[in-house]
Design a binder for these strands. Structure first.
Lengths: 256, 256
DNA sequence: CGTTTTTTGTGCTCACGTTCACAAACTCCT
DNA sequence: AGGAGTTTGTGAACGTGAGCACAAAAAACG
């Protein structure tokens, strides 16, 4: 799955003229103060949509096109992009490669990030082998597991290290992001050790609430919670149908 | 990891008296119309916190206690619970087991749900073996993969079936929830086939935007997007520090 | 039995996010 | 060159969610 090249600092190709950059606030100034969190969460989606368009050799896309590819409302997309700067051309749309570069720069994907994964069970294993990381500039720098029997085992082209080596590894290379895929019981302890070693962002797959200092970011992914949310809606659907049912027995059951 | 028993339809033990159920709107009526989506997403977290308290033989918990265990503000927790009904006792708090049952009932966890997983790669494998599903009433009913070489392979105590068997499987047992863990390219097609076969809720791990009819719910989990969001914040931290730096070269670099 | 203490349930306010709708900016065609 | 047609960027209206702060309810205690 070869991707179109990412680094593309200037507009090119296409019939679109470059925007006159002299009027209006500078992009840097604009981007500097507060992109809303909801917008940040959507930027990677836009990036993916742009990449997909670029692979189809599309040079220009309207907000409507892009919004379609990203699965959002076009007004929302335009507003989101407006927080980054004015990268579109009225009457035309957005230069796909140019916009792609700008978003990638904003997110920080023009540099590589080292990631460390702690807890190499089922899930940690899958994460270690997940190709979607590397292709977006996330390099797995080390794998850690507390089980001595597992230490030394090969996963992909890395070897599992022991918990004791954690500080060592983190002091040698600069790792900013830690992924926790341990059981719930171990998560807070692992988290504390990662934070102590200078990790500033944590992606937590363990079903546990993590407590961290203010300067550390945590995001949580919880598989069973997602299923539970779906179950809730699914139940409501069934419930509603039951209330409409002709069968009084079904109706009575639903009303409980 | 033995969990405390879930089904507990009536209050018991503890010194808390049962609420007088005759005044105020009925719980059913209240729960019927719109629990906010944000609240629904937190219910599973509360449930987990309650389970954890119950395992520690805690019988009663205040909103403050619960909120602490769930990692949220106590006012928010109280308001969330108020959408379900009046299950607390002023001056006392909530009966842990009673509330646990009520939330589980609301989410729909008092019944079992069958789940089908499509795409048994790294991630699908991990999901198939994930114990967190079974323990919350989600039973994996079948595993599907399009690769003929993989069909028949054993994973846990299931055998991988072919895509062709999909309709067969779904018509025999009633599966409401489908999990897509295929590559992005296959996701929409798999999704369409699941929907056609009557699946009403989909959990999508593939990095693709799915289009579904209105009556179908989709939730998306995207690992690399989570990392990208963390990268954004991490970059901003580094950026801010650079702007504060004494070194003019670092400052200049940061200002680009 | 009244007073104090605890803790819930909720009205209210503010902040954030979404969507509409339209002027401004640009292209294209005659 | 000017008018018709497109499409962006954004002000304004609206909707949802978060958090404060307090009355109401229950318990504890003298």
């Amino acid at each position: 799955m070869a991707e179109a090249p990412l680094l593309q600092p200037a507009r090119q190709g296409s019939t679109v003229t470059a925007p006159r950059g002299n009027r209006s606030r500078s992009h840097v100034e604009r981007a500097e103060r507060g992109v809303p969190e909801a917008t940040v969460a959507r930027l990677p989606i836009y990036l993916r949509a742009l990449t997909s368009l670029a692979e189809g050799d599309v040079l220009t896309a309207s907000s409507e096109d892009l919004a379609g590819a990203a699965g959002v409302n076009s007004a929302k997309l335009r507003k989101d992009l407006s927080y980054l700067g004015t990268y579109g051309t009225r009457g035309v749309g957005y230069d796909v490669n140019y916009l792609r570069y700008q978003i990638a720069r904003q997110i920080g994907l023009t540099q590589d990030w080292s990631v460390i994964i702690v807890g190499i069970g089922n899930l940690g294993h899958a994460l270690a082998n997940y190709s979607g990381f590397a292709s977006r500039g996330f390099q797995v720098a080390a794998l850690i597991d507390s089980d001595p029997a597992r230490v030394g085992e090969r996963v992909g082209d890395l070897r599992i290290s022991s918990m004791d080596d954690l500080d060592d590894i983190l002091s040698r290379s600069s790792v900013a992001i830690g992924v926790i895929a341990t059981p719930a019981g171990a998560a807070q302890d692992v988290c504390d050790r990662l934070v102590a070693a200078g990790v500033g962002s944590i992606l937590n797959f363990a079903p546990a609430v993590l407590t961290v200092p203010d300067h550390v970011d945590v995001r949580k992914v919880d598989l069973s919670i997602e299923l539970q949310i779906l179950a809730y809606h699914e139940q409501r659907k069934a419930h509603g149908l039951a209330l409409l049912s002709d069968d009084p027995v079904v109706r009575a059951g639903a009303a409980l």
